[in-house]
Design a protein around this nucleic acid. Sequence first.
DNA 1: TCTGAAAGGGTTGATGG
DNA 2: CCATCAACCCTTTCAGA
Lengths: 160, 160
Amino acid sequence: MSELDTIDRRILDLLQQEGRLTMTELGERVGLSTSPCSQRVKRLESLGIITGYHAHINPAAVGKSLLVFVEITLSEKSEPIFKKVRDELQNMPEVLECHLVSGSFDYLVKARLTGMSEYRHMLGTMLKQMPVAAQSSSYVVMEEIKESSVVRIDRSRPRT
Amino acid sequence: MSELDTIDRRILDLLQQEGRLTMTELGERVGLSTSPCSQRVKRLESLGIITGYHAHINPAAVGKSLLVFVEITLSEKSEPIFKKVRDELQNMPEVLECHLVSGSFDYLVKARLTGMSEYRHMLGTMLKQMPVAAQSSSYVVMEEIKESSVVRIDRSRPRT
DNA sequence: TCTGAAAGGGTTGATGG
DNA sequence: CCATCAACCCTTTCAGA
């Protein structure tokens, strides 16, 4: 029903790399005319497979030249606490990512900041809003070797 | 010279959130007609401030339901080794991000994978291609609480 | 599901304020 | 640096296969 065929996968691949391709151009690259190509893209959007389109910008150009990862360990692990942490982090725009991880700590947070004063402020907010944050370790990024969100699309195994 | 004014910042903000906005619509939202708006966007692109446009997709829809972070520590830290690591990681499409960090380890790698077999394969490749990788720790993401690359644009301080 | 064609809207570039 | 306008291109929709 919502199986993705080879053309769908190529569309996803191309739009991940060039998010402003016209439907005409995209259609030519995947071997379709404009109409069905546009139709497929709309379908991928409404299925929630394409979740949005975003310009990628150079963070330094808008003053966000500090990239930090913070590992947070909670001393108490209950569902209300988890929920509070989720809600708080959602409302912090400098926090780009937050993941609940297995292993030796609980949350891995990625944040882009203007500098150390914003960093101190963020850590303060976190520790205040998340009272049981027993421990945190921060890692400042010295060099961004690679940063992308483009997922490799494996060749389809269509049902012949 | 390449100072960003208030309108530029609003353009960056809007295009980060809706990367396929038409120049006409974008112009209306920032109070410009189509041409100067398009002109500004082109300028932001050619200055390298907007670095690209990308569709964001649901990784699970294309089978990438495993998200892993790997911390890598090198036992030997020389420039040739750093260069080799950079080159190797650039060529691994499952590696979405790689950062050189300060602190108790060297590289933080973020990868999206189809499953454990791909994970094992990736780790094997890493340890083989990066001979001095003395140690690595992996963290499997149990829940993605937040994931975005949209940077908050602070209100400009225009030079009046 | 695709193609093709027609109508509506967006983009581009020249012109002028 | 901005608005306007015309020519061109893209998108959308609807037949028809």
